[in-house]
Amino acid sequence: MSQATVAIRPARGFVLPRFLTSEHPFPWLAPITAVLLIFGVYPLLYALWLSLHKRNPATRISIFDPEYNWLKILTDDRMWGAIGHTYLYTIVAIAIELVLGLLIALLLDTDRRGYGVLRALMTLPLVVPPAVTGMMFLLMMDGSFGVLSRGLYATGLLSPSTPILANSSTALTGILIADVWQWTPFMVLIMMAGLRALPKDPYEAAAIDGATPVQAFFKLTLPMLSKIIAIAVLIRGVDLFRTFDYVKVMTEGGPGTATETLTAYAGTIYFKNADFPYASTIALMTLILVVVTSSLFIKIFKVRF
């Protein structure tokens, strides 16, 4: 290492301070830190500052009242509903996407001819802008004209008198369908990456012992994939927790508040009631819940990046 340090000494005898040499992490990490501080941390502190104010919607004057919004949030029924919907949505979507993703990855991960094309096509949903995905499924789930709705009516799975997005007990499923469609392919890619990186030897040994493919899957594949599964769940989970576009476009949190997630609720307070301080409080509460939940997850499953 000392050799390397010597090597960058300019001939003129001028010596860079140690922390500016490429041996020190500072020059490598300074630019990204600057960007994150300016565009990430500063706005966050600003949002925190906002949340400590009480806004009068008639006079539009905000006064410093640090407890007001944070106490209000605890007694707000809609907030508790939104927390419930958010966890439900996140857990169900993660479970479906993970299982489907793993199964499809197993299905498509072969060198046989034609499967390359299938794998390529499978990534297509990923590139659709989520806001557009929302519109796409909104049109397909339209109670009168949607192709999906009519398909469900025809098979008797759904009654034409209660379209999927119009019913408070099925609307969340409607949004989940859009999410699962868009993000399962992402899981497929991750799982495929995991499968490809698995060592071959244990399988050969298992085959000699006469294990069936199913046994091999549960005894070998799954345990060896557990690490990547944990990371995938974490990354997707964080995104799911903040889902906004689908809810906004498809139901606006409705019917009633049946699909109102935390970010959707913050959006409503922000867009419609213009109560910036309270909207900030809800958004920060979301952040707190994400951090707490994911920290627990990281601890329990010992995730390391």
Partner: peptide
């Protein structure tokens, strides 16, 4: 490069993804 707090620093970078965009709209606009 090994340095003290490397894991914590990495976690900090990743935690930036936890932030709901809606939380920073007003501040960013101003």
């Amino acid at each position: 490069i090994n340095f003290r707090g490397r894991q914590a620093y990495l976690n900090w970078i990743l935690s930036q993804r936890f932030m709901p965009p809606i939380a920073i709209i007003v501040p960013i606009v101003f």
